[in-house]
Design a protein around this nucleic acid. Structure first.
Lengths: 250, 250
DNA sequence: CGCTTAGTTGAGTTCGTTCAACGACTGTGG
DNA sequence: CCACAGTCGTTGAACGAACTCAACTAAGCG
């Protein structure tokens, strides 16, 4: 696959960030916005299918997703892949590189993705000068932890049908809160991605999704999944939703 | 089971914390130690088998494990249980309650556990006055995330034998770094816990552990697992270890 | 046009499950 | 002291969920 990266050192000021007006995110003070804007180094746009970060890399940057869908994953030596979570607008990526020295997982784009680029060297000044933003970063890390807990419960203890229902409901809820759907609730993902998230083979994933399709809860089409009944998916999974109020992002 | 809690408002000063001298933990400045000590409200001791925190609770406290073993878990409505991770000395618990409002998982003691108690209301002063400690808390959250990533990979993509080998190697490495073993490397855990961590039935877990026993990698006895060959367990799992340098704790 | 990727379906096999029974050990109460 | 219940671990047998293998369609692209 041909992939391209275009780095843009032109910065949209954070004060004009298209994400901030969403009711899903908490409001930021003028002071905070000013600092975040100075923290921001530029923007990066990548094609669908390209790798944003790779396991083992020592990236000098942190990113916040501005637009698009992607996912984090790990692989075993023999190629078995596990998708850990999905990234969407507002998500911070690359924090692990700051803590562990190198990335412990890879990140790949599902759709064209644009990112805000931050220099991780300046993270310490954020902690020194802006405690509220520092707390936000902890908040973001703890949120990811919470989501991973739920995924673990899902893979470990839910049946194949429940798992599939949970995953799609999860992606649907996140997309909806971010206003990513205009009319049709379309998730840009292949069945291989679903399989690698649920810990199932692609064949069994296909048969499981078919069952959800027969119940008219989803419709599979053009490399993606259209959600028809999010409520019922949640009921099948026995999942209550993320249930978070306003959330911060950098 | 009869359980007891004894709250002790007598505080061992953090300057004399038995954990701090361990080479596994980073050194703290006098200033930092002084603050942490003032942040500490008291100590709590619980019996093996007792519940430390319960899903849905609004705890006013944060805890750091001083001694003992425990685990975090979530349950589905019908009783299926998934163990998410294990807690050991130096681990911070209850942070999710601070971020999400209420606990999203429960915590239970595997052995007698003693905890340092912190008041979460004062967390914001920590962020305001001690950026280095604030960063430590983010570090701790990111570390947990990293471990959960590895667990997800394990449950999702490793075989039963690999999973079991990974889990035991993981617990062994953590215990070893904390100097928890004197001679015998004994992990205080039942096969039911292993099963609920690996996402397997107890019967199959038993048969899988038996295979590890036949290879003389572990020995099962008196409600726990003795590790005989951690290296070989890691090799079976294809796991490189946590690979972290010194780590902080509060 | 051939090549690749994504999705579909059937057949046979394997891995892990459930059900069931049993032994060893612990603690409790009579 | 014994009887009893409860927990933990073990094992065999039968079943079922999920896997691999394989073949095939449909769409997209150079």
């Amino acid at each position: 696959m041909v992939t391209s990266r275009s780095v843009n050192s032109f910065k949209t000021p954070c004060q004009q960030c298209p994400l901030r007006p969403l009711p899903h995110f908490r409001e930021f003070s003028r002071d905070e916005l000013e600092f975040v804007s100075s923290f921001k180094r530029g923007e990066l746009a990548v094609d669908a299918g390209s790798t944003i970060l790779v396991e083992g890399a020592h990236s000098a940057h942190l990113f916040t997703v501005l637009a698009g869908w992607g996912f984090r994953y790990k692989m075993l030596e023999d190629g078995r892949r596990q998708i850990l979570n999905y990234i969407m607008p507002g998500d911070l990526i690359g924090l692990q590189g700051t803590i562990a020295g190198e990335m412990q997982h890879s990140v790949e784009a599902l759709s064209p993705v644009s990112l805000c680029v931050f220099e991780r060297d300046r993270l310490m000044t954020l902690y020194n000068k802006h405690p509220s933003l520092a707390f936000d970063i902890t908040w973001i890390a703890a949120r990811e932890e919470r989501i991973l807990d739920e995924h673990l419960l899902s893979i470990g203890r839910r049946t194949a049908l429940e798992r599939a229902a949970y995953l799609i409901a999860f992606l649907f809820e996140r997309g909806r809160k971010l206003n990513l759907f205009n009319g049709r609730s379309f998730i840009p993902i292949t069945q291989q991605h679903i399989a690698d998230t649920l810990g199932l083979s692609i064949v069994h994933t296909n048969k499981t999704l078919k069952k959800l399709g027969e119940r008219r809860l989803i419709r599979w089409q053009e490399r993606g999944c259209e959600v028809l009944d999010g409520e019922e998916l949640m009921a099948i999974a026995g999942w209550e939703g993320l249930g978070e109020g306003k959330r911060p992002f950098i």
